[in-house]
């Protein structure tokens, strides 16, 4: 009973957390807390097999699946807290509260009496006892779950499958298309420019600068632009400073150091 009184507040708090946290990942982690606590309660309630299954199947497999999908969908996306359906939140709380209240009333007016306990049923071991019930009285239902799982697996495959509607493009096709685009509208034929590599900055998320100092947008990978995580190119003024700094020594030693100084400047500018 101690385990219950320790775990019950934690579970209720975690469940309420699922309601209130804004990020889905946090909700998933809180749910995992509830499930593991539940597993412990199963152990308390003389159900060691379900204790294991709860941890392995629920916490291990199902919650992992949830997290997996969350990663696919985007971990960062957090819910807006603004309720769009008028009255939905109030009504939900009122009806849900009423529901809980009614269930509590039902339980309160029913006297369970002393529990029988599973001493006799678990005499030969809990797993053996379960197996006997499962493979005798519930064998048909058990077979049906096999069909259900296979159907679910097939269904998930069908749903997740994406049909290819056009033949796969070969490298030759792509090359041909690129040349055709060049001929039609003068599109850049070569590879995209590399991202910026500076003395101060050397990162894929920073655009390269063109000779006139403007950032070249095409030098940054599209996914970074889409995520909005790209950095801004160094300010124009900054470049001027760099050029000025570079030009200083160059003015002094125009004759002797010209050959040594220019290559790095050229390489950075491009």
């Amino acid at each position: 009973m101690i385990a219950f009184w320790v775990l019950a507040p934690i579970m209720v708090a975690a469940a309420l957390g699922v309601l209130f946290v804004r990020k889905a990942v946090h909700a998933a982690l809180l749910l995992a807390v509830v499930m593991i606590s539940l597993a412990v309660l199963y152990a308390v309630l003389e159900a060691p097999f379900l204790f294991a299954v709860q941890i392995i199947v629920y916490t291990g497999a199902i919650m992992m699946l949830f997290l997996f999908v969350l990663m696919l969908v985007g971990v960062d996306a957090s819910d807006s807290v603004v309720e769009t359906i008028r009255g939905q939140r109030v009504l939900a709380v009122v009806v849900g509260g009423t529901f809980a209240l009614l269930l509590g009333l039902l339980l309160g007016q029913a006297s369970l009496g002393a529990a029988s306990g599973l001493g006799d049923a678990n005499a030969g071991g809990n797993i053996e006892g379960l197996a006997q019930v499962l493979f005798s009285r519930y064998v048909l239902a058990f077979e049906a779950t096999a069909a259900l799982l296979i159907t679910a697996a097939l269904g998930a495959m069908v749903l997740a499958h994406r049909e290819r509607l056009t033949p796969r493009e070969s490298q030759a096709d792509r090359a041909r298309a690129r040349v055709r685009a060049y001929g039609a509208e003068g599109a850049h034929l070569g590879p995209e420019p590399a991202p910026g590599v500076y003395a101060r900055h050397n990162a894929v998320d920073t655009p390269a600068l063109l000779p006139d100092g403007t950032p070249a947008a095409s030098s940054v990978p599209g996914i970074i632009v889409a995520r909005g995580t790209g950095r801004r190119a160094p300010a124009y003024r900054d470049v001027e400073d760099v050029v000025g700094t570079l030009a200083g020594p160059r003015a002094d030693a125009t004759e002797e150091t010209h050959a040594e100084d220019t290559p790095p400047a050229d390489g950075r500018g491009a």
Binding site: Q88, L91, A92, V95, G96, T98, F99, L102
Partner: peptide, 8 residues
């Protein structure tokens, strides 16, 4: 919500 109402 209406389903829950029914359950209530």
């Amino acid at each position: 919500l209406s389903v829950l109402l029914g359950a209530v």
